[in-house]
Design a protein around this nucleic acid. Structure first.
Lengths: 208, 208
DNA sequence: TAACTAACTCACCAGTCCGTACATTAGTCG
DNA sequence: CGACTAATGTACGGACTGGTGAGTTAGTTA
């Protein structure tokens, strides 16, 4: 049955369009009128459902973070040995960030705004543990097996992976402008994917 | 002699104020009126000297890039052995980015805008060679001395260093919101500085 | 089917913001 | 000094932009 009026669908469509617009133009650069024009509904509905521009942006941010949290939660690497598990985790982040440029850009935008919306929204709750749990367990197993150094902080390893995977998307354009190399070029994808794995494995297994 | 009218000083003051404002608020978020109010001159002067908001932003960007290029050019590591030279280079980038958060934020903002201004401006000319020359020479020496792998791309190494050093500043706020750790906390500074050095050295010296 | 509410449309406003026309003054040079 | 030009200040316009008031229609329920 073709519902003419469908609150859920309307809401979802607004958020989807807004995600592209905010990711594309930034918070201040995005236009409420433009977002409305790209939906099948009107600007008034944005104010009806989200209260205003900021409320809409918050909803966009929450959905984006909720998505990555869901992905992380279903990663299962307990059956792999530590080195392979660590590599797998790095590659999951690599693949996710590559496929979700909207997310990468929203994170960059949110940082420009000092993460003030993320702090307000409560979207960040539970993110820390979800992201770090798997990593912490892998590293504990690696240390116990005598494969990994015992003085490496899991959060440091997370930062190494994140910085590399975020950078490819977030700094793609200035990098290309300066070095004439597209960091997201499919031709160098496998090479880079291998590299981030090598990098973290080398880091946690290195001898001092 | 106290010149009441001083074109150079006025110009420079406008650029300095604009640098903070653009870095702080982003391109769309920054306000021409606000920039003018924070200088000792008026908005009219911005249009007199820079033509408009975009021209001013371009000037800001060019000055920021010019600054880092100057720094890179005077780095001298030829007298150090390869491993130490590489570490030194990583630490130079680390220190520069840490001390120039305006630059790091401008790069992030420029990427949000697909580097369209950087491409237009010609500020990027010469940047590639300046940044890569030193690194390429270090790596060649390392390979010749049998210390480094011979299949590592200098640009890949540059990317590893950049991503790490940029991330600390550019993603500081979301990282803190989620993990409750300030990446620029002076207490963890030396540890992280050591880490990026270890990371690249391990990468170029690792055995396959 | 009549009453009710959620979902939606339309027209409009008030404030913001980039940009400019025009007037004026400081410094320079013959 | 007097004419000229670079530098600067004032006041304002007009388009844009986030937000809203008031009314309308679809679907639901008693």
């Amino acid at each position: 049955m073709e519902r003419v009026r469908d609150a859920e669908r309307t809401r979802a469509e607004i958020i989807d369009v807004a995600t592209s617009e905010f990711a594309d133009q930034g918070y201040a650069g995005a236009r409420v009128d433009e977002i409305a024009a790209k939906t099948r509904t009107t600007k008034r509905m944005i104010y009806y459902y989200f209260g205003g521009k900021e409320g809409l942006y918050l909803a966009v941010l929450e959905q984006a973070y909720q998505h990555i949290r869901a992905l992380e939660q279903k990663l299962d690497v307990e059956h792999l040995e530590p080195v392979e598990a660590l590599r797998k985790l790095a590659e999951l982040t690599f693949d996710h960030h590559e496929q979700h440029q909207d997310f990468v850009r929203l994170v960059a935008i949110e940082n420009i705004h000092y993460a003030q919306h993320l702090i307000k929204s409560g979207a960040r709750e539970g993110l820390a543990s979800t992201a770090l749990d798997v990593l912490t367990r892998i590293m504990a197993r690696g240390v116990t097996a005598g494969l990994f150094r015992d003085d490496v902080d899991a959060l440091d390893v997370h930062m190494i992976i994140s910085s590399f995977c975020i950078f490819r998307g977030a700094n793609r354009y200035t990098f290309r402008a300066i070095f004439d190399r597209d960091l997201l070029d499919p031709a160098s994808r496998d090479h880079q994917r291998q590299m981030i794995g090598d990098l973290v494995v080398a880091h946690v297994t290195s001898r001092r």
